[in-house]
Write a protein that binds this DNA or RNA. Sequence first.
DNA 1: CCATGCAGTTAACAACTGTTCTCTGTAATT
DNA 2: AATTACAGAGAACAGTTGTTAACTGCATGG
Lengths: 208, 208
Amino acid sequence: MSHTLGIRQAQKQKTRQALLDAALGLLEEQSLSSLGLREVTRAVGVAPTAFYRHFRSTADLGVALVEEALGSLHPMIEDTVSAAGDSDERITRAVDLIARHVERYPAHVRFIARERHGGVQPVRDAIREQLARFAEEVKVALAEHPESEGWNDEDLLMLAGLYVDHMLMAASAFLEALEAPEAERERVARTASRQMRLISIGRHHWLG
Amino acid sequence: MSHTLGIRQAQKQKTRQALLDAALGLLEEQSLSSLGLREVTRAVGVAPTAFYRHFRSTADLGVALVEEALGSLHPMIEDTVSAAGDSDERITRAVDLIARHVERYPAHVRFIARERHGGVQPVRDAIREQLARFAEEVKVALAEHPESEGWNDEDLLMLAGLYVDHMLMAASAFLEALEAPEAERERVARTASRQMRLISIGRHHWLG
DNA sequence: CCATGCAGTTAACAACTGTTCTCTGTAATT
DNA sequence: AATTACAGAGAACAGTTGTTAACTGCATGG
């Protein structure tokens, strides 16, 4: 199925990934719109001109980073929302998954939170598109819950959007508390869980 | 009461405001971390070195912009949350106020949304502090509603935080739809209202 | 009325940026 | 084995950046 890459292509992808990794690291302390291409190549240890073999511009690299950060997240979303158990169990599980994801990929999460409203339009667009896909997937998953009986499509999507937005707010809150003491991080988790639970309660009493 | 400023101080404040205005304009298409001080002074028409008479750095200017954008917003928050009427009326009024605010001060709103998670720490901190103040004020206002009977302080604050976050999400959504046709903007308003209503319903059924 | 303070100017600096063109080595193709 | 394709290097470009220093003119306070 998957064609084994030649030495040539393999090395190219390696450099490309090194550029992405270096950029992600540099972006922990600045925004994409201030990231210079020379800065990135310097961090990797290649000539500035090598950058052009992989990306047209830093904006282009940013779009690639969006794919890397969000593209592989769909399965996780899927089985978070469609998991078994009652609402409270699902919420606990979801918040826990978010927390673990932030711990494992803090730079990715920071990048998304930062560039969602950032200064580079193509990147904003790419993030918006991915989040819209998430919302759509969440909507489909929600529709299969028995609680969704009588809900129309528009309201399901508005609820899904609320969940996705809150997921990001929670991730961002975890990120800010990453270096904080355990007690603070647990407080963040408690708050996020309760907010999700309140939304969930609103969902159950939406009709009638 | 207010001491009339001398010609000298008045001119200084005028230049300072011009710098703030020019920066805010430039920040519509980039992030603060890529805003150069020369860029700002060039837009105003003063020498680059004049910048230092007013701000230590662009980060410092950013903090001043946070005050300008959020500092004067407290009264509006206050009377939105504590207004008379049942929940639905309050929600309609709040969403309408947000929409009007975004139309009147789009650059301010964009700046806050962008820099809340942006690349400049002092600015992030300033925004976080202001939003925490908002949440505290909303909490106090909520506590006076009859619906808040039996609520403890922690839960009131978590609800207030949810409202504040959603207020910002709504503002950001309005911002993205600013140039869109009326139909789209109305759709955004509908979604924001319904999401707030769902939260409000969750609030009413939170206990027991 | 004169001396001081200070907003804003001018000039210069070393360092940095994105981009172009030319070149090199080597993997891939024939 | 000879040829081609192409990832990356190297050098040079015009333009930009933040910051320093010494200055000028004028409103202010004595």
